[in-house]
Design a binder for these strands. Structure first.
Length: 518
RNA sequence: GGCGCCGUACCCAAGUGGUAAGGGAGCAGUCUGCAAAACUGCGAUGCAGCGGUUCGAACCCGCUCGGCGCCUCCA
């Protein structure tokens, strides 16, 4: 039984959708005026995983995630850059897709834009005015919070506690300081739409009410977003939507915690800000591996808690994922032994059950990952005892299936954290091999720093090392194993060190053959 | 001033009343020509501190300390 922590009640509650087997879910996407940072990534990822798990659990998920493409910040940005609002929003919507795709976030079922729902927005505003919950002042329309008795239920605030005007000047025309704009008259040069109150544009919150009601109905199951949206955004959405329809709006409210840097919220004013594309640009690993590493990192913390971002945590995540792909490599090899075959089914069943328990408990991804780690360890043991090719395939399939809920373990090839794994005498030998290559002018010696333990995400210098093709590597491997057979270990080691200095790790198998990895 | 969150081993991180999951890093060992992988073992008598409730508390209550967020735009 799935339980979800509901912000509205402050409790974990059993989840029962309004319509059996179907979940209708709305998530506040982004306001498109800038590149996405890791915080946006976390939010997108959290709800992507929730959606995936609901589907895995047998639900059909109608998942709506919006773009807010009319907004003060967009107008401001457009004016700064001397371009139109459309140009700004088009650019950053595309950037959003680019970034989020690299993280393996699946597109929502419907991704509506505010600008495409003006009729809905105007109609909703008219309804609120007609019901006496909103009033017009000049060309603006405000929602009157005092007319909505439940105002503050989501954020657990009383109207009297809200010290409006403490940090910003109160508009004298408003009846209550907390009244908020549904419709704003537009100044010359600003984007505007016709309305009964004159040309204008929607306020910040109304578009989400309009779009969610349009695509999911007046009452739906899940509404989500970042913690910071609880107030005022979601509070106001509830007031508008319930006020207009007289019905319950969203039934379960889910909010994800912040990404922090050194215990502080990321923000532009603090300058502690990482965009998604920045992470990819700085990563020393290929795109797919970087995406999965980031994903693992973001899911290794429960979605409601704060999450501190650091290079070290990111590297730890990479190492952890490497461990899984080490296993997948073994699972890809054939074996005729069958000793452990009979135990695999039970092992898998245990993991499935633990995984389900974890995810059912308010999407506890760290616990779910622990279950997968358990399976990794168990399967490695079975592999030592002897697992047939067929059952190896079964095990790999299981990792794919469960991993798919988290968006992990879908890759066929994986580039390992090779240089970081080298230790001791071997590392010295590799450094020496590399030094010789550098002297011979083969590649940039700055690669040294990569090998000798760097602490920051380095600029990608790997590209300056000789890139060997698979065929070249295979050829070297044959050469080396021939040497080993002849007991010419000096030559064998030279080849090993050469390959290591190119970022290739060789692992010898008991039968005299070897596997390699990047 | 109001509302709320966080503090668990070297690091990350579960656990929210029944006697501290998991991972990463580290150390030791098995295996191995070397190396890597894998496996085995080690690692918090204690969960910021102090009180209280309880047969029993990391979990409940109170206070204190430290850090953070929201109340203006923000994932």
């Amino acid at each position: 039984m799935l339980k979800i922590y509901n912000t509205l009640t402050g409790k974990k509650e059993p989840f029962e959708p309004l319509v059996p087997k179907t979940v209708r879910m709305y998530v506040c996407g982004v306001t498109v005026y800038d590149y996405c940072h890791i915080g946006h990534a976390r939010s997108a990822l959290v709800f992507d995983v929730i959606r995936r798990y609901l589907e895995h659990s047998g639900y059909t998920v109608e998942f709506v995630k919006n773009f807010t493409d009319v907004d003060d910040k967009i107008i401001k940005r457009a004016n700064e850059q001397g371009v139109s609002c459309d140009q700004i929003t088009a650019k950053f919507i595309q950037a959003y897709y680019d970034d989020i795709e690299r993280l393996g976030v699946r597109p929502a079922s419907i991704e509506p834009k505010a600008t495409e729902h003006m009729a809905d927005i105007v109609r909703l505003t008219e309804t609120l005015v007609a019901k006496g919950l909103a009033y017009q002042v000049d060309g603006d329309v405000y929602f009157e919070v005092a007319k909505f008795p439940d105002y503050g239920q989501l954020s657990r605030r009383r109207l009297e506690d809200l010290q409006a005007g403490a940090r910003v000047d109160v508009d004298e025309r408003k009846r209550h300081p907390m009244d908020f704009a549904l419709w704003k008259s537009s100044k010359p040069g600003e984007p505007s739409w016709e309305s009964p109150w004159g040309p204008g544009r929607p306020g910040w919150h109304i578009e989400c009410s309009a779009m969610s009601i349009r695509h999911l109905g007046e009452t739906f199951d899940i509404h989500g977003g970042g913690m910071d949206l609880i107030f005022p955004h979601h509070e106001n959405e509830i007031a508008q939507s319930c006020g207009a329809t007289g019905k319950e709006f969203a039934r379960y409210w889910i909010h994800n915690g912040f990404v922090q840097i050194n215990q502080e919220k990321m923000s532009k004013s603090l300058g502690n800000f990482f965009t998604i594309r920045e992470i990819f640009e700085k990563s020393e690993w290929p795109e797919a591996e970087t995406g999965e590493m980031l994903r693992y990192f973001l899911l290794a913390t429960q979605y409601r808690g704060p999450l501190d971002f650091s290079d070290q945590s990111l590297r730890e995540a990479k190492n952890a994922v490497d461990g899984f792909y080490d296993l997948f490599m073994r699972l890809g090899e054939s074996d005729t032994r069958t000793t452990a075959d009979k135990d695999l089914a039970l092992t898998i069943e245990r993991c499935r059950s633990a995984f389900r328990d974890a995810m059912d408990d308010d999407f506890n991804t760290p616990m779910a990952i622990a279950a997968l780690q358990g399976l990794r360890s168990d399967v490695n043991k079975l592999l030592d005892h002897g697992l047939s090719t067929e059952w190896r395939r079964t095990a790999r399939t299981e990792f794919r299936s469960l991993g798919n809920c988290l968006g992990l373990f879908q890759l066929d090839r994986w580039q390992f954290n090779a240089p970081a794994r080298l230790k001791g005498a071997h590392r010295q030998a590799v450094l020496e091999a590399e030094r010789q290559h550098a002297q011979a002018g083969k590649w940039d010696p700055s690669y040294h720093e990569l090998l000798s333990g760097r602490s920051k995400l380095p600029p990608t210098e790997r590209s300056s090392a000789p890139a060997l093709t698979d065929e070249e590597i295979e050829k070297k491997l044959v050469e080396r194993n021939e040497a080993r057979k002849q007991k010419d270990f000096k030559k064998a080691d030279e080849i090993r060190h050469f390959l290591s200095s190119c970022g290739i790790i060789i692992e010898d198998k008991p039968n005299g053959t070897s596997r390699w990895k990047r």
